[in-house]
Amino acid sequence: MNREERQNAGVDNRPSAQSLPMFHRILKATPETVRDALGAVRARFRDEVGGDTLGRLELVLAEVMNNIAEHAGDHVAPGQIVRPPLVHLWVVGHDGGLACALSDDGASLPAECLLPRDLPQIGSEDLPEGGFGWYLIQDLTQELCYYREGRRNFLAFRIPPGGFAG
């Protein structure tokens, strides 16, 4: 298996008569480029999947890529990112939903992001304003897996078709 095949493993590693052409986009992750990429995903899959599935796909991809933009880049101070990570995004539709894979050259993902997690506690006194992102990703995806190879992160998951979640 060569490098490119390994990167695509788990997404399209067996021939399927039912899979549709793959979406692939490369971006230097900033909130603005993430927004553009989500617009391209939406335009590409609008006619292939229902509105509910598309909504769940967009939310998960937004959470994953915003997390990369915010935390994985080289920064000189919190919020001052000098080198946004270069992200590859692949999405392919098939019978089991939408298979997604992302690769980036940023800092590695902390292990706790992938551990099963609960929502932040809702107390009437002090409502949490963050900590929802990875909960949403875990809640809306199946077969979520992560590994780091060399200087790159790889994350893959599946968005089930309508009627299963969300």
């Binding site: 939310l59 937004a62 959470e63 304003e129 929802f132």
Partner: peptide, 13 residues
């Protein structure tokens, strides 16, 4: 027509 968790955090704030 779209809100992510940072938008949610903003509404909570």
């Amino acid at each position: 027509d779209f809100m992510d968790s940072s938008g949610l955090g903003a509404v909570i704030a």
